[in-house]
Design a protein around this nucleic acid. Structure first.
Length: 283
DNA sequence: TTGTGTTTTATTGCCTCC
DNA sequence: GGAGGCAATAAAACACAA
């Protein structure tokens, strides 16, 4: 063992290294390691033989960090697939099998979990985005339908009003029937308005039949509670019971309820695909 | 060749659990 | 209090375009 070489002590969780002569030395990016210390760093070995191979040190620049061989990575990957957490026994076995320090195996698993999590976040984001896009497109088409229906109702209301106001010769009974019809239509429109985004959507009805605006005891409220959607869009309020806890009336306009519903949908889909629950890393 | 961006290996510090 | 996990970060290794 050449003097000046540095040993990595796997049993040490921190950053202690040992020189060939046994002198302890601190190392690590955050330990202000200077170039002199850096030149003493021992490269990682890929087989037990290399651990004591003098030639290895002669051939390799001491400060070089060694990458794991494809075979080592393959075995680690396989092991990670079966279980992404590492019990001490498995860690020791793997380390022996791979000719690595147990600490290296632990670090590899740690980094692998971090990579997996990043990828998973990307997948989840894509899934949420597509759910959101599809909901948005549904919403748009529903809104268009709603607008169309409202204009149809408006036209019908005009016709009906013409009959009621200038309806000379129309019997009292038929007037009552027509007023009932108008009220029914109005209630229907109001119900739809609650689902629509348009501010003052029911104004179509109110404008055309101001005399029919309900007296206040209507089942439907006349003031419209808009539910702000993403990017300032107004979207239907979430269905009762699905509303998230964050959205308990303290709506800050950030669409929590809306996104939570999307998330629920995404998670359900995620489950259906037999994948690990999304929640494990959110907690 | 070189500059630059990405990936991999490793450390550090904090947190949680037993 | 020690072990192990995680986030943040450093730095070497690698990929790749100009």
């Amino acid at each position: 063992m050449g003097s000046g070489h540095v040993f990595f002590d796997p049993s040490c969780h921190g950053n202690m290294l040992f020189l060939g002569n046994g002198d302890p030395v601190f190392r690590g990016p955050r330990s202000m390691m200077n170039m002199e210390d850096s030149s003493k760093r021992r490269p990682f070995f890929s087989s037990p033989e290399e651990l004591y191979d003098e030639e290895y040190y002669d051939e390799q620049s001491p400060e070089k960090k060694r990458r794991l061989t494809p075979e080592q990575v393959h075995l680690l990957e396989k092991s990670f697939e079966t279980e992404n957490k590492l019990e001490p026994e498995r860690k020791t076995q793997l380390a022996k099998k791979l000719g690595l320090q147990p600490r290296q195996v632990a670090v590899w698993f740690q980094n692998r979990r971090a990579r997996w999590k990043t990828k998973q976040l990307e997948r989840d984001y894509d899934q949420l985005k597509s759910s959101y896009d599809s909901l948005l497109s549904d919403f748009d088409s529903i809104r268009k339908d709603n607008d169309k229906l409202k204009s149809e109702v408006g036209a019908l209301m005009e016709k009906l009003q013409g009959k009621v106001v200038g309806g000379a010769g129309v019997s009292e009974k038929s007037e009552v029937v027509e007023l009932d019809t108008i009220t029914t239509v109005q209630v229907k429109v109001k119900a739809e308005d609650r689902l629509s985004s348009g501010s003052g959507g029911s104004a179509v009805v109110d404008e055309h039949s101001p005399q029919l605006v309900d007296s206040g005891d209507s089942y439907f409220h006349t003031d419209h509670e808009e539910y702000p959607g993403p990017g300032g869009c107004n979207i239907p309020p979430p269905v009762d019971g699905l509303q998230s806890e964050e959205d308990d009336g303290s709506d800050d306009g950030s669409c929590h309820g809306y996104f939570s519903n999307v998330f629920v949908a995404a998670e359900e889909q995620h489950h259906e695909e037999g994948e690990e629950p999304l929640g494990w890393f959110w907690s």
